[in-house]
Computed example of a mutant assay.
Amino acid sequence: MSDEAEMVQRGIGVLTATLSWQPDDPASAQMFKESLRALVRLDDPVSISFSGGTPEQTEVLRELLPKVVESVIGALAPDYTRLVLGMATGFKAVADAYQRDVPDSDIEGILQAAALHLAEDE
């Protein structure tokens, strides 16, 4: 599965977790936070290639740039997390309203079908 498809699958997993999320329930909130952590892949190796420059410059860049990338990711992570949280909160509100209006709705089944369709496309 491609990295893109894997991240979409993880996003569908977050939406699925959102369905049972109860913000006032600490256990539910913790489970939801864990599902958000599935989106972050800080332990993936950073690979950077260079051309030109001296071997010493290349070595310095090889040492320095992964640390810079990690710092940038760390700086962006809180905003990214808030963005995903906002999207999940909106999805939860829509899903709850839909379930109220259509009691026999199967939102989890819809998400599961989306995940299966994605896997078939791969």
Rank of each mutant, 00 (worst) to 15 (best):
S105N: 08
L85D: 10
L76R: 12
V14Q: 02
L39E: 06
A75K: 06
E63K: 13
M87F: 05
P23K: 02
M31S: 15
E120S: 05
M7L: 14
V84E: 02
E70N: 10
V14R: 00
D44F: 09
P26D: 10
K92F: 05
P23I: 02
L36V: 07
R82K: 15
E56C: 00
T81G: 10
I107P: 01
W21E: 06
L85S: 11
S2Y: 05
P23S: 05
A27N: 11
D96N: 09
P78N: 03
A97N: 05
F91S: 08
A95R: 02
P55Y: 04
D106K: 07
K33C: 02
L65G: 07
D3W: 09
V40G: 05
G52C: 02
M1S: 13
L65K: 06
A77K: 11
G52T: 02
W21C: 05
G74I: 05
S28D: 08
A17I: 06
S71D: 09
T18G: 11
R82Q: 15
A77S: 08
A38R: 15
I12C: 00
L64Y: 14
D106M: 03
L42T: 07
L76E: 14
E59R: 11
M87R: 11
G90A: 13
E70P: 00
R37A: 14
S35H: 01
D3H: 13
E63R: 14
A97S: 09
V14D: 00
S28Q: 08
T89S: 14
T54G: 08
E70H: 10
R41G: 12
V84Q: 03
K67I: 09
S71P: 00
A75M: 10
Q22D: 15
G109E: 06
L76V: 11
D25F: 07
R37V: 00
L39A: 06
T18Q: 04
G13P: 00
P55F: 07
F50T: 05
E63D: 14
R62P: 04
L116S: 07
A75S: 12
D106I: 00
T18D: 06
S47C: 06
A29D: 13
A77Q: 12
L64P: 00
I12A: 01
E56M: 09
D121N: 04
E6H: 06
G90N: 15
K33D: 15
E34A: 14
D106Y: 04
L61R: 04
R10W: 03
T81Q: 10
F32E: 01
D104P: 00
T18C: 13
T18P: 02
